[in-house]
Write a protein that binds this DNA or RNA. Structure first.
Lengths: 189, 189
DNA sequence: AAATATACGGAAAGGTGTTCCGGAAAACAA
DNA sequence: TTGTTTTCCGGAACACCTTTCCGTATATTT
């Protein structure tokens, strides 16, 4: 049996490479979706495929890394909105933020709702971060009677992610309208 | 240049094989989604892969063949509902039919909204069949003031298809609730 | 400078979708 | 029935990706 081996701090080139891969992935994902060939990412990052898989064994790890910053910002925004605006409006505004996060990046909506084994992790991990924030918005809205439905945060966040899927021959405004109808159904007029 | 060659009627074994492939695909799609390996379908059908690709060059051709009957039935049902029920209810009832068609078949919702080149055809082809029927329901509902939104048939049918996507760890009732909220937003209370 | 853990690159292995073609079989003609 | 023509079949071959693996290179530590 081995105890935790002689630990040494991570090599600096490894750190640089990880950053380069995330940056390249961000660009490639935006263009070609999260199913883009690995080689496209590694070529752009200037590393070998092995390097990518060492840092991000599953595709979901890479997707999560790409989104981490924006997810955090979105969660924080929810907290801010919870106290700043009227509950009903806060919800609408937050939905718009979430929409900007998901719908404007080709393939990201698909990643969030995929049942592909390599991506299954990411939906839940994103929700773990965002659900509590959204739930507090929902609770506040429900207390003031602004909410009609029984739906919990998971339902809302799932519906939004689904309605963000790119639709052939349509721009993001199409999705925006779908979401508007959904929110309309959620909030009491 | 060649004129249309000496035409002869299709061989009977070819017809049988095509039918066998569709039948097998129906079963495999229901289990494993529309991205199931081709070999799984051909093995079940008892034919070689070449046979399948000859009859159905793109995956979407096969999916369309599998669904053709049910799509027709769903479109006809819309026509019937248009005259039978109150416009608002007719819409809700038709949505339930569409839901049964799409949500209960794993992966079919994904096929309808995929941007995979091999599947792009099927969303439109289904919509071409279903949109006119739904549009007449929408128009009727709008005439009686039961409809709130500006959304056209394409928007409604797209939203329904999206909200039918299987959600990990949740059953179809989860999707049903999402759709209920959407319809609630579509119809004036 | 030497020693050692860490990380790299890309070749190899494994899998799946799609094409292709020699041979088999059905349809037709006589 | 027998021969000829056309269609169609099966699965090997090809192409493209993902993922693993390991000999080599390099950063870090002593």
């Amino acid at each position: 049996m081995t105890t935790t081996g002689p630990s040494r701090r991570q090599r600096s080139d490894a750190q640089q490479n990880a950053i380069a891969v995330v940056k390249a992935a961000k660009e490639v994902f935006a263009r070609g979706g999260v199913d883009a060939p690995a080689k496209e990412i590694t070529d752009l990052a200037g590393v070998g495929v092995g390097t990518m898989y060492r840092h991000f064994p599953r595709r979901s790890d890479l997707v999560a890394a790409v989104m981490a910053n924006e997810i955090d910002a979105c969660a924080d925004a929810a907290q801010a909105l919870a106290t700043a605006a009227k509950p009903g409006e806060a919800l609408t505004q937050w939905a718009e933020l979430y929409f900007d996060l998901v719908a404007t990046k080709r393939g990201l909506a698909a990643a969030l709702t995929s049942d592909d084994p390599g991506l299954q992790e990411i939906g839940p991990s994103v929700r773990d971060r965002l659900e509590p924030a959204l739930q507090s918005l929902l609770d506040a809205a429900r207390r003031t009677g602004a909410i009609h439905s029984e739906l919990e945060a998971k339902g809302v966040i799932t519906a939004l992610a689904l309605l963000c899927h790119p639709v052939p021959d349509e721009g993001v405004d199409f999705n925006r309208r779908l979401i508007a109808v959904f929110l309309n159904g959620l909030l009491v007029p």
